[in-house]
């Protein structure tokens, strides 16, 4: 079992009083709570902070923690002999639990679901995992392998971390940030209480071509100046395979061309749309022939894309 210095985690001295511990916890909780923090590692940091507070705020658990002695954070250690008996009737298997499991299981910390012999109904703990899937899998539905390590009591009442693996079928229609529930796949209930649920957060892998907004997709569509000016039929990649898109004459940069129902499938019925955003791309290296044609166009065209500058300047002068 790895040692964690709970005083260091909360940034308090070992002789800090309960008020100082509470203040330190609240300050850190405001910063790292996963429901309010934007720190990507906030959830992990908050778990450590919450574990530290749950132990140090309870005088009995704090005394038990202090009895573990001082070790380097991350260092492997064993509690002193009879430590478990001294602080409760809980039996531990110390090699496959972490420090938080140890203190959650201590007497005085409340009955924990999943413990044999519970005399009242208690639902199992809910768990949450993130499934990273591709856009293509989100659109057509997929199956993901889930591998969890969860705390569970064995038939002798000893706490262990046990691996649980199963497959979860994700129906078509997922998009970034959506959540699904797998009923009864969380922690085991106690005393006849129901098992907890497992919540699945969907995170889409970034795609080389498409950007996602809900169930709509956005794609950059590079066009030559002559395709944009004259109109063209161009091939566009979609999740369902390439399609031909008619680009109207006079298309300008930034214009959105909609391909209806070519986005991500929605849950149930319907599909999002795919938007191709026109980008006018000019060749950086010109052949002699191309240069001559562009020159001919420049000489023969009266088109002035900056005509409004002059007009606005005149308006501005009048306004002054």
């Amino acid at each position: 079992m790895k040692y964690k210095d709970y005083y260091q985690v909360l940034g308090v001295e070992r002789d800090a009083d309960a008020d100082a511990i509470k203040k330190a916890y609240r300050k850190l909780a405001h910063k790292y709570h996963p429901d309010v923090s934007k720190d990507p590692s906030g959830e992990e940091k908050f778990k450590e902070i919450a574990d530290a507070y749950q132990t140090l705020k309870d005088p009995d658990k704090r005394a038990a923690y202090d009895q573990l002695g001082r070790h380097q954070p991350g260092q492997d250690f064993q509690p002193p002999p009879d430590w478990g008996k001294q602080f409760g009737d809980t039996q531990f298997s110390f090699y496959d639990v972490d420090l938080a499991d140890l203190f959650a299981g201590l007497a005085g910390g409340g009955q924990r679901a999943g413990r044999p012999g519970a005399t009242f109904k208690m639902p199992g703990q809910d768990y949450e995992v993130t499934a990273h899937i591709s856009l293509e899998d989100a659109s057509r539905g997929t199956t993901v392998d889930l591998n969890l390590t969860v705390p569970e009591y064995d038939e002798h009442g000893r706490l262990h971390r046990v691996p649980r693996s199963f497959k979860a079928r994700i129906p078509k229609g997922a998009t970034d940030g959506q959540r699904l529930r797998l009923r009864g796949k969380g922690g085991k209930g106690a005393g006849g209480g129901p098992d907890g649920d497992l919540y699945l957060n969907i995170a889409l892998h970034p795609h080389a071509l498409y950007r996602v907004s809900g169930h709509d997709l956005y794609l950059d569509l590079p066009l030559t100046p002559w395709e944009a000016a004259l109109g063209a039929v161009v091939e566009v990649p979609t999740l369902g395979g390439p399609v031909h898109l008619k680009v109207p004459p006079g298309t300008h940069a930034g214009q959105k061309l909609r391909l209806a129902r070519r986005g991500l499938a929605k849950p149930g019925e319907g599909d999002g749309d795919l938007y191709a955003i026109a980008q006018i791309v000019v060749p950086t290296v010109l052949s002699e022939r191309e240069r001559a044609l562009f020159k001919e166009l420049a000489d023969g065209s009266s088109f002035n894309p900056r005509g409004h500058f002059e007009q606005e300047m005149k308006n501005g002068t009048r306004a002054n």
Binding site: P123, F166, K167, A168, R169, Q178, L180, R183, D197, P267
Partner: peptide
């Protein structure tokens, strides 16, 4: 062979009672 489970969307097609919501939270 691994056990396979269906995941269910948490959206407006699911209707929960107050008691069910209390249990979730």
């Amino acid at each position: 062979e691994r056990e396979q489970t269906d995941a269910v969307w948490l959206d407006d097609r699911m209707a929960l009672s107050l008691a069910e919501l209390a249990r979730c939270s």
